[in-house]
Amino acid sequence: MTDLPKKAAAKWSRLLRVEADAQALTNSCLRELSEANRLLDNAPHGPRAPSLRAVIIEGRARLVELQQRHREAAALNTHLLRWLERNRSVELEDLPAARPRLLKGDTAVDAIARVRDRIAALRGEHTATEGAMLPIGDLKALVRSHVQTLAERARPKIAAASDKVEVTFRSKGEGWSNKPDLEGLLAWLDPAAFEARLCEELAGTAGTSLRLSPEEKSAALSKLRAEMDALEREEEALIEMAIDTNGVTIERRASASPAAILGVRQKQQARAMA
């Protein structure tokens, strides 16, 4: 596992303690339930039977809550550990905690819901941007390049002897054959016409899909990732605020950024942003 900087290491230790404490409380509740059940089995009609049944009912409800709390803590720490293992060779540095923003009348819980809605919307934009098609002009340039490649590949080889001519064609593999590659032959016979017909077919796929050049897509994705990173760090700050000021524990999302939770970033990322 990668070495964590000071603040991140302290937080990681705290999260591990939360999991261990949740496990200890769950085990304690199980022991109490076991003992109550034992006493009730021994004296089902004794004077303590009603109170023991009440303890068992209350204990079962509490056990469900404690087990859920432990599952959440364990899932979070597994999520973080896997990320740390994948980044074992990456040098990390602490970042100052994000400043959570509360709108007028907001509680930390309200603000977290608002931030999570925005993160979800940005993830949708990110997915749409990743799937954006190239502009028609760029696609036509790809068609032209494809036709040129086909035509060059399909150019026949002619061998002339004293009384005959032998024509062979390059196959779709590496060898030669007396059977032409039809697609390539069409491109070789009339590349302009073949290209024009392919572009006509291409125009029919235009639709209303998002279209971006590689440069535009890269810039848009970088902007979206930066905004999502800032929001995830704000979300984590709000979760910590809810714990510190209200004693409210809010489950972190399964897809929450480990870097945001631990408050770190890669050092080379910091140099790139400088």
Rank of each mutant, 00 (worst) to 15 (best):
A151I: 06
A220K: 12
E125G: 00
M228R: 05
P180E: 13
M133D: 14
L122P: 01
R170E: 06
T149Q: 11
S209K: 12
E125L: 10
E174Y: 06
K179D: 12
E200A: 13
P191R: 01
A128K: 10
G247L: 04
G247C: 02
S162T: 11
L182E: 13
K223T: 15
E125Y: 01
S209T: 15
T205W: 09
G175A: 13
L198G: 02
H146P: 01
L150I: 06
I136G: 02
E201K: 14
A159R: 13
A237Y: 00
L139D: 06
L122A: 05
A203Q: 10
V143E: 02
A132L: 08
A196H: 14
A160F: 00
K172H: 10
N246C: 08
P191G: 04
T208R: 15
L224Y: 08
A128P: 00
G137K: 09
T205I: 03
E232W: 01
E130S: 09
G173I: 01
A121M: 08
D163F: 06
Q148C: 05
A237P: 00
D229P: 00
V165G: 04
T205P: 00
S171C: 07
T127H: 09
A206Y: 14
A203K: 07
D181A: 05
S209H: 12
E240L: 15
A154Q: 02
L210P: 08
A193N: 05
L221Y: 06
L202R: 03
A230K: 15
L186N: 06
D138H: 06
E251V: 11
F169W: 14
K164I: 00
E234S: 04
A132H: 08
G175Q: 06
P180V: 09
E216K: 15
P180F: 08
G124W: 01
A242C: 05
S222T: 14
M133N: 12
K179M: 14
N246V: 02
L202H: 02
S177K: 03
F194C: 12
R170S: 06
E216H: 08
A132E: 05
R252E: 05
T168K: 07
D190E: 15
A196L: 14
Q148A: 12
A160T: 08
E232Y: 02
R197W: 12
L186W: 09
E130Y: 04
R153D: 15
E195D: 10
H146F: 14
P214S: 05
R118C: 01
G247V: 02
R211Y: 03
A230V: 07
A230R: 11
R233W: 02
L221N: 06
K157L: 11
I136F: 09
T149L: 12
K157R: 15
D163M: 04
R118E: 12
L142I: 04
I250T: 12
D138I: 03
R118T: 07
K179L: 13
N178I: 12
A154P: 03
A121Q: 15
G207S: 15
A159Y: 00
G207E: 11
A203E: 13
D163Y: 03
T249H: 11
A192W: 02
V167Y: 04
